[in-house]
Design a protein around this nucleic acid. Structure first.
Length: 584
RNA sequence: GGCCCCGUAGCUCAGCGGAUAGAGCAGUAGCCUUCUAAGCUAUUGGUCGCAGGUUCGAUUCCUGCCGGGGUCACCA
């Protein structure tokens, strides 16, 4: 029920009915109907005449006259006015917005959800933190962003899979195993002294060491590394992943698929080799030398022949190596195989959520996806910028010493999941974000999380109030649908309905752009208008939602409050933020 | 040096092909001191980094500069 799409269709029909000469089918593609910039322009605005003027060889206003004449025949349209450079501004019949409100109440929780995605499969890969320690603040934004994006796409009618890529194959994971092995010996009573440079010093490995001691006793102590390492590694990775999942659960984030990098290389699968062979068959693999990077040549640069992927054929800046000098695969090679696997699982739409420090990686990954799918699959990489922590305006200093940064767990335990989730997405993903521990828990207008949640709570409160004060009034959904909505005539009330009417459009636009922050900003606007209307009742008691002398008005306004509450809770659900009925 | 992202009101940021560029904070001026639950209303403030280009029309798209950040074989 996207009225803007609805009227876009009507405008296009009007254009056809006007029987212009020389109109091509795709000329109509750019025709849209939008909310007007200014309420004085009417209810809806279309760019049709301006867009069509060129192909038709007419002046915009001349084309507009003919289109407007056709539109005027629509019974929902009271007037089609031409303004500015050729806008067609539509004024809708009285009662139209009230009918929209009725539609929202009738649609209930499904309101705003769209079939735009046509059930197509989308894979959203996010978090994918290395399994070497607890989640920290750096992971948090991508985690929340990815999760909200996944929900958003689902609301827009996609078949979404939430996926986590476990980087369990490289040198880091060996370092992790050695670190855990030390803790194991420590658990057995050995004095291990300082954790050596290069190993992970964090205390979080102590329980892992203890668990290993419990399981193996002293059995692993005098064995050669080649024997204990695979065992310790697997146990430790499992423990780290369990910890990470617990951390994520605090933010209500749960992935459906955990995909192991190592599974691509090990055993008889050989998926990395297979992916490389698939590229080789397309003539995209060769042995060659790479020029050293300009500007700054690494100290240990060695000019050697290596196995390269022709990424430059797909827009990358240089061809990319797939094998390290020790003969093992590069991370990129594994990642190609991973995305090949996604493609073979039927995902033609893939989204990777990464930190901004991976910006240099996107061209090659997009190139790889294009190459490996023969151009069938599309990858979008969303980069999340840094989060800067503050406390009451003062930057929170984070020591460089490893293991001493703010963990996700500490963050959520202090402020709760809702502020974290809301604030992480209350900014465009590629803009840096300031997060203030104190501000986000304030119960004031200055705190957007509170402001939006409070609007929902206030809506719930109005209903509680109605029960208490006017026990005679039926307030169930059926009664609200049939409420005498013509009682809603105040400009603030109609304005709020118009705002609510935008919700389906916001979802579709945000989903198409892969930008969940638009939902957060929209909810802020809804909350703002709702609060404003509530406040107007202070000055003008006749505008109060609950009016003892007028059960018709009250019921109509309860329908509006109900619809507002629906939109707020729906949008908050997409963001993964709770919609409380009271704030105490 | 190459590549990517960002330069919009004093501050933090929306807007990303359309009509006089928006919001919050701060500032200013009132109101409220009580009720519908953590104030309310109004208002000041902008060559949309600079210069070209595409377009009927550019903050929005393209190119080049300037400024800030990130990144730059064999780490993940």
């Amino acid at each position: 029920m996207n009225i803007f799409n609805d009227f876009t269709g009507r405008v296009k029909a009007a254009v056809r009915a006007a029987k212009f000469d020389g109109l091509a089918a795709d000329d109509l593609d750019r025709v849209i109907v939008e909310p007007p910039r200014d309420a004085s322009h009417g209810d809806l605005a279309s760019n049709a005449a301006m867009v069509l003027a060129k192909p038709l060889g007419l002046k915009p206003r001349d084309a507009a006259v003919r289109i407007a004449a056709e539109l005027a025949r629509d019974p929902d349209i009271d007037a089609a006015e031409i303004a500015g450079p050729g806008f067609i501004n539509l004024r809708l019949r009285p009662g139209y917005w009230q009918a929209v409100l009725k539609g929202i109440v009738a649609a209930g929780e499904a309101y705003g959800h769209s079939r735009l995605g046509k059930g197509e499969k989308v894979n959203v890969e996010y978090v994918s933190a290395n399994p070497t320690g607890p989640m920290h603040i750096g992971h948090c934004r991508g985690a929340v962003f990815g999760d909200a994006l996944a929900s958003l796409l689902a609301a827009a009618g996609h078949d979404v899979t939430r996926e986590y890529y476990i980087n369990d194959a490289g040198a880091q994971v060996i370092t992790l195993a050695r670190s855990a092995y030390l803790r194991y010996r420590e658990a057995l009573g050995e004095d291990i002294g300082e954790i050596p440079e290069g190993l992970y010093p964090g205390d979080y490995l102590k329980p892992v060491g203890q668990a290993l001691a419990d399981e193996f006793g002293g059995f692993l102590v005098d064995r050669p590394e080649g024997e204990w390492l695979p065992v310790v590694r697997d146990r430790t990775i499992a423990a780290m992943m369990a910890m990470i999942r617990d951390d994520l659960k605090m933010l209500n984030i749960e992935h459906e698929v955990f995909f192991s990098e190592r599974s691509l290389q090990e055993g008889n699968a050989g998926k990395v080799a297979a992916a490389i062979e698939a590229l080789r068959a397309k003539g995209l693999i060769y042995q060659g030398r790479l020029p050293p990077p300009k500007g700054q040549i690494p100290d240990d640069w060695e000019d050697r022949e290596q196995t390269l992927f022709r990424a430059t054929e797909f827009g990358d800046d240089v061809d990319r190596p797939l094998m390290k000098s020790d003969g093992s695969y590069t991370y990129f090679a594994s990642d190609i195989a991973y995305h090949y696997d996604k493609f073979r699982r039927g995902y033609l739409n893939m989204i990777d959520v990464l930190g901004a420090d991976h910006g240099g990686y996107v061209k090659r990954m997009k190139a790889a996806v294009t190459a490996i799918s023969g151009g069938e699959a599309e990858l979008d990489v969303k980069l999340c910028q840094l989060v800067r922590l503050f406390r009451a305006g003062e930057p929170v200093r984070m020591s460089k010493r490893s293991g001493d940064f703010v963990t996700l767990r500490e963050l959520v335990e202090e402020v709760g999941p809702d502020p974290v989730r809301f604030m992480m997405v209350f900014r465009k993903n590629d803009a840096p974000l300031d997060f203030d521990f104190q501000k986000v828990t304030e119960q004031s207008k200055d705190n957007p999380v509170f402001y939006v949640q409070y609007a929902h709570a206030r809506a719930a409160s109005v209903f509680r109030q109605a029960v208490a004060e006017m026990p005679g009034v039926e307030r169930n959904v059926e009664a609200l649908i049939h409420a005498p909505l013509e009682k809603l005539s105040d400009s603030g009330e109609i304005g709020l309905i118009r705002r609510l009417a935008e919700y389906p459009r916001i979802i579709e636009a945000a989903a198409e752009a892969h930008e969940p922050h638009r939902i957060a900003f929209y909810l802020y606007e809804v909350a703002s208008e709702f609060h404003a209307q509530w406040n107007r009742g202070k000055e003008l008691p006749q505008l109060r939602f609950i009016n003892h002398d007028d059960s018709d008005s009250t019921l109509a306004r309860l329908a509006l409050v109900h619809a507002t509450k629906l939109v707020l809770s729906s949008g908050l659900a997409i963001l993964g933020v709770s919609a409380p009925d009271e704030m105490r």
